[in-house]
Amino acid sequence: MPVTTIGGKEVHVDDEGFMTNYDEWDEELAKQLAKNIGIDELTEEHWRVIKFLREDFKETGETPTLRRVSTVGGFPTKELFKLFPKKPAKKMSYIAGLPKPHGCV
């Protein structure tokens, strides 16, 4: 399991770079992760989505799929594509320090 340094902190990541240890994540790290993938500023809306992902993962043990973020979290799909362009499911889980979602829908 590779260890990498992000924002001066050592974190465990998988081969693709998604964090693998839930507790190594903090908000400062999230800002750096966002920058890594071209999201320079996390707005209030970004944070609401990220916090939902963190909470939901804690409850279910799985990263929510895009559909779950929209139906359970209440964030419209269109909005998610605006906040995390092109690949919202992967991008939001990366910033939230979670594995990428595995569900098909």
Binding site: T4, T5, I6, G8, E16, F18, K86
Partner: peptide
């Protein structure tokens, strides 16, 4: 200075945008 290992960043395939 903390060694700035190249961070492993997922490839979000911007090059695949076509």
């Amino acid at each position: 200075a903390p060694e700035q290992a190249t961070a492993v960043v997922p490839d979000f395939g911007e090059d695949e945008s076509e």
